[in-house]
């Protein structure tokens, strides 16, 4: 920040404002990340050994078909031209045409994206709603070496649950609630009850992780001087915890929330495949197996943008909640 402030002129004036500096910096990072992402998605097809069209259509496909398809995909143009066309297409929402269904990739994404997003957002909401109160309560109950048994049970069960990846949890839940108890549907997306198992498989692991972090953060905050001040004011315990401790425990929690949410995005790929969920995750796996590269390319880009957007939102939220963190970063 010092190097900016010594520079005279109108730009220095704008950048003196920590918020402007933060916005410029963060936007710069976003653009750089988007560029790396777009380039990686473009290069993906060209990094595949051999001819992607040949490997997609199979060894028996006639030469004419392969060359016609190559031409249609623009694969015979020089690389920089292709790169330019690709980036232009992405900006105008043109992700190319699926090699297996001949539908525009943008249409496939438009059809499938809502189901995936709904799943991820629902799971995330469940994670936050359950784990924040759970972690905070655990901190309050077990602080200062009290209730060692509760602490041990909480820690070991959360370690165990966090270690089980969502798709294995999904298999377990399918067996328990679908096969054994026959309470809930185990495939497809129809009606509210079809959401229960996918959302639960996605949420349980992150709940275990986040509740543990909230507990640790809360314990750290409860050791702060201002908590002692609140106790010296003889405030009732609920006010000390809810008004003075919890908001201060949220910054680190929020940072982790971003990581968890991006992890959830990845988790949907597997969980969708367990539950035959009509989202992007089942589509990308089918496309990878069918070597439908334009579709894969498009979906990879969407997932990537999703991750970047989550990171951006978390950073902005952090800056709003804790203005000091922006200044520190700058």
């Amino acid at each position: 920040m010092t190097s900016v402030t010594v520079r005279p002129g109108p730009i220095a004036g704008v950048l003196d404002n920590p918020w402007m500096l933060f916005a410029t910096r963060r936007l710069g990072r976003l653009v750089a990340s988007l560029w790396v992402l777009g380039t990686a998605a473009f290069l993906m097809i060209h990094l595949i050994p051999g001819d992607p069209v040949r490997s997609s259509l199979g060894l028996t496909a006639p030469v004419e078909l392969v060359s016609a398809r190559r031409k249609a995909l623009g694969l015979d143009d020089p690389l920089p031209t292709q790169y330019w066309h690709y980036l232009k297409g992405v900006f105008t929402g043109d992700f190319g045409v699926s090699m297996s269904s001949n539908l525009p990739v943008s249409q496939i994404i438009g059809d499938r994206l809502p189901a995936t997003m709904l799943l991820a957002v629902l799971a995330f909401v469940v994670v936050v709603v359950v784990s924040v109160p759970l972690g905070a309560a655990m901190a309050v109950l077990t602080r200062g070496g009290r209730r060692r048994g509760t602490e041990l049970a909480f820690t070991s069960s959360s370690v165990l649950l966090a270690a089980i990846p969502p798709f294995l949890l999904a298999v377990g839940l399918v067996y328990l609630f679908g096969v054994h108890l026959r309470w809930l549907p185990v495939a497809g997306r129809s009606g509210l009850d079809s959401y229960v198992l996918p959302v639960a498989s996605l949420a349980i692991g992150p709940i275990a992780v986040l509740a543990r972090i909230v507990r640790v953060e809360m314990l750290a905050v409860l050791g702060n001087d201002f908590i002692r001040t609140a106790r010296a004011k003889r405030l009732p315990a609920r006010l000390i915890y809810a008004r003075h401790a919890l908001p201060n425990a949220m910054t680190a929690t929020l940072t982790l929330c971003g990581l968890l949410l991006t992890g959830l995005v990845a988790g949907t790929v597997l969980v969708e495949n367990v539950f035959a969920w009509p989202g992007l995750g089942s589509t990308i796996v089918q496309s990878i197996q069918a070597k439908d590269y334009p579709t894969v390319q498009g979906i990879v880009l969407v997932y990537g943008i999703g991750v970047l957007v989550v990171n951006l939102v978390v950073d902005v939220l952090l800056a709003v909640l804790d203005p000091r963190s922006t200044i520190r970063e700058a």
């Binding site: 991006t262 990845a266 590269y293 990879v300």
Partner: peptide, 13 residues
């Protein structure tokens, strides 16, 4: 910043 599984899918392609 990207989850490992997404990177793995990318490289798997």
């Amino acid at each position: 910043a990207f989850p490992g599984l997404l990177l793995a899918l990318f490289f798997a392609v």
